[in-house]
Amino acid sequence: MPPLPPPPVASQALWAPALSFNESLVLAAVLFCIGLAGVLARRNLMFMLMSLDIMLNAAALVFVAAGARWHDAAGQVMFLMILALAAVETAVGLAIILCLHARGRPTLDGDSNNLLQG
């Protein structure tokens, strides 16, 4: 792996971040694991969607933290894009639930909708 470039000199920073880079990475990892556990453990489709959003937010947090560390706005731009992605993902998920309702399977149980089983 190529070595990461050093962070900018401290005197250039106008403010100190509340969390250090490592702390935010740990926070993001914890968030990601919570989200993953939610996706794996919950059977309710709504809660699975929410857990997916938590995972996306964890990834977004890493971008923001990296952007803050290297003083680069690209991290926040990526955050905006992930935000849009999360909105789209939620919309598609909700549309699938609505479709199930329209097809006469009014259930939120993720495991009972297994028509694709091999």
């Binding site: 993953l36 996706v39 794996l40 453990a41 919950r42 059977r43 699975m48 993720g110 495991d111 909708n113 297994n114 028509l115 694709l116 089983q117 091999g118």
Partner: peptide
């Protein structure tokens, strides 16, 4: 065995991906 992997349950797919 392989067919059992394709059980149509989203959670298991997610687990395999993870």
């Amino acid at each position: 065995l392989l067919g059992r992997m394709q059980d149509g349950r989203v959670r298991w797919y997610a687990a395999w991906i993870a």
